[in-house]
Design a protein around this nucleic acid. Structure first.
Length: 640
RNA sequence: GGACCCGUAGCUCAGCUGGAUAGAGCGCUGCCCUCCGAAGGCAGAGGUCGAAGGUUCGAAUCCUUUCGGGUCCGCCA
């Protein structure tokens, strides 16, 4: 395995190196290697250098499409590049000819063991095993920070959850919360400066309806307290008909019947006494504020239980009160993007009460939307869209240059207009990406668990976390592409088997910790001789580890946090495979007292694997476990 | 009528933004515990990537058309 040009034949590797190149100050034993966290980026740089040497007349942009990546088929080697094919036509050379020339250059690199042109112009590269092994010290030095990208200079705002503050969070909100939080972590891992943001929709008709419902609960509390009043007498006479009585008495419709507002009613009574008895705009506003505040306390507690913490909470009402809506309209007006006009009725499914109306419209069609969009309701207040435009103007003013949203798929129709607005407001300097999350169907014992907020009975997020544990919730929510429907089986996510990735990945980490503990938790692997790591399973694990930085980069660029979950599952698979090799062949066990050098090398590999697992779990917001308990449920749900 | 998302093994899903012979788990068939935890692992069978065209050295991936499933469509958020 050891190439002849590196080590004198017949000499032990360490001795050979020591004789030929004593460099005690350098931690790396192969100074010729180009060492960085991402060895694919390193080899890409090497490849582009070589190519430029061959084709000095080509401009730098000609090489932008050069990719160095792991080949799909491992038998092709460690890396493959399309370099020859990508620049062939600019260089006016046939790809195979260019591939042959480039291969000869690449073969001279110290990192490279073997180069083979293949197919229509691919170049397959086999790396020096020592170069691959030399990545382990890099990983160990970085620890959980392995995979951390260099600062991109991008200031990114990730807005997610943003559930209406009209009740506790339920499972429907959960996926967006987890995906958003993991995505924000992922972007930070890739080097962006990330702000996690929650937009409180506290300015619309929904929260007004919520205020009425809280008012109802307040009246019921007042009635029970024996306060005087005609309405309260009625409530006392028929306590079971409280809802209908309040609706009839005040000419309103109570949309929110959930019992979670009873404590809010009690708090209102305790603080204000009978002062809120006659609903006026002022009292309703006070009730609204108190109710929204109470709901936000609950929502934040739910989010905390899920391990989600936002940096910024922005209130829609406050954004509007600050005059951002008028300011946004001025900006749009100045650009000639606002006008008074009448929209065509939507085709196919015209609303029953359709009538042509003149409205204040935003020229969204100039930015790729299907129709222009209204900014003002007939009562003069801003539409939700207009308020959101105001919020986005505010974000742009705060200096973000990338905006990311995580929305439920039912908001898919809203994406184009919002992108149009951001383009308009920022003259296309600021980008907006929207990640849509599909519905989660919750199953228990194979049966769908129905959720109905209106009926007041639904699985709350808190219930879900109690049932299966925070880590299982978070991991499972990331085991599908965001934009694919998902079944969340309450039984399966706590199952301890191969087909539950939550368990499988945690199991790998627990096994690693178990071995390292058994070995006395060695902390220092600096200078460890890694040459005993030669088994195919060991090298496969090392190769997987070396791909982690590019997985982070690719997942961040695609805004796809689920890739982290899949990577960890693969990494755990490579590890379990290696573990099992030790069962078949005792010489491949991790701890071999009679072989201290091999033991240390393998422990270094395990420590590095553990670090990458933790690095990935940290992005997902999942706690790596030290050991698996012999309990069937809830072992990852304990507090702390 | 229109917009957006999704159709990949019997089932549940990946597929690294255009790369080579399309992968994993479950299920099925056959194996591996005197062993650092078998709560694992190995091997096999299983596919015209919904369909038809197009773009180019090369398509599950990009474009057009079409068939299925989902979400949405003027003062709800």
């Amino acid at each position: 395995m050891v190439p002849a040009h590196q080590v004198a034949p017949g000499l032990p590797a360490a001795a050979g190196r020591a004789c030929l190149r004593p460099e005690p100050t350098r931690p790396l034993r192969r100074p010729g290697f180009l060492m960085q966290q991402d060895i694919f980026a390193a080899l890409r740089a090497r490849t582009v250098d070589a190519l430029q040497g061959l084709l000095p007349e080509l401009p730098a942009e000609a090489f932008s499409r050069v990719v160095v990546e792991p080949p799909r088929d491992a038998s092709h080697g460690d890396m493959a590049t399309n370099a020859a094919m990508v620049v062939a036509k600019l260089a006016k050379l046939p790809p195979p000819k260019l591939a042959a020339d480039l291969s000869a250059k690449l073969a001279e690199l110290p990192e490279v063991a073997e180069v083979a042109p293949a197919g229509p112009g691919f170049i397959n590269i086999r790396l020096q095993p020592e170069y691959l092994r030399a990545q382990l010290p890099v990983v160990l030095a970085a620890g959980e920070a392995y995979g951390q990208g260099a600062a991109t200079g991008h200031k990114v705002n990730v807005e997610y959850v943003s559930a209406n503050p009209t009740g506790p969070m339920h499972v429907g909100h959960c996926r967006g919360a987890v995906v958003g939080d993991a995505l924000a972590n992922l972007l930070a891992k890739a080097g962006d400066a990330v702000t996690k943001e929650y937009y409180i929709n506290d300015a619309g008709a929904q929260v007004q309806a919520l205020a009425w419902a809280a008012f109802w609960r307040y009246l019921e509390v007042a009635a029970r307290a024996g306060a005087p009043g005609a309405v309260l007498d009625k409530l006392r006479a028929e306590p079971e008909n409280g809802r209908a009585i309040v609706e009839a008495e005040f000419g309103t419709t109570l949309q929110y019947g959930g019992e979670y507002l009873i404590p809010v009613g009690e708090a209102l009574w305790a603080e204000h006494g009978p002062a809120l008895m006659d609903p006026t705009p002022d009292t309703l506003l006070a009730i609204r504020h108190a109710t929204v505040a109470a709901m936000m306390v609950e929502i934040r507690a739910d989010l905390a239980a899920l391990g989600v913490t936002h940096d910024v909470f922005i209130s829609e009402a406050e954004v509007v009160a600050a005059g951002k809506l008028e300011q946004a309209e001025q900006v749009l007006d100045a650009k000639g993007l606002m006008y008074r006009g009448i929209l065509e009725p939507p085709k196919g499914k015209t609303p029953d009460d359709w009538e042509p109306r003149e409205q204040t419209l935003f020229r969204a069609t100039q930015f790729g939307d299907d129709t222009d969009r209204p900014l003002r309701k007939s009562d003069g207040s801003g539409t939700y869209f207009a308020n959101d435009i105001a919020n986005h103007l505010h974000k742009i003013e705060r200096g973000f240059d990338e905006l990311v949203h995580v929305w439920g798929a039912d908001h898919g129709g809203y994406v184009k207009r919002m992108k149009a607005a951001v383009s308009a407001l920022s003259d296309s300097r600021v980008s907006l990406d929207v990640v849509l999350t599909q519905i989660v169907h919750v199953l228990k014992d194979g049966q769908p668990v129905r959720m109905s907020k209106r009926a007041g009975s639904y699985i709350t997020l808190a219930d879900l976390i109690d049932e299966v544990g925070r880590d299982a919730v978070r991991f499972t929510m990331l085991t599908r592409k965001a934009d694919a429907q998902m079944e969340f089986d309450l039984n399966k996510v706590v199952e301890q088997s191969r087909d539950n990735p939550v368990f499988y990945v945690q199991y790998a980490h627990a096994r690693i910790r178990s071995v390292l503990r058994a070995a006395g938790d060695p902390a220092d692997f600096a200078g460890a001789d890694l040459s005993p790591l030669t088994d195919a399973a060991e090298m496969a694990l090392i190769r997987r580890i070396t791909t982690w930085p590019r997985v982070v980069e690719g997942a961040a660029a695609a805004r796809e946090p689920h890739r982290i979950a899949f990577y960890l599952n693969d990494l755990a698979g490579d590890f379990h495979m290696l573990w099992n090799r030790g069962r078949e062949d005792a010489t491949l066990r991790f701890i071999r007292p009679e072989e201290p050098v091999a033991t240390k090398a393998r422990l270094a590999l395990l420590a590095a694997t553990g670090a990458v697992l933790r690095s990935g779990l940290q992005v997902m917001g999942v706690t790596p476990v030290e050991e698996l308990r012999d309990e069937r449920k809830g072992d990852s749900a304990e507090p702390g």
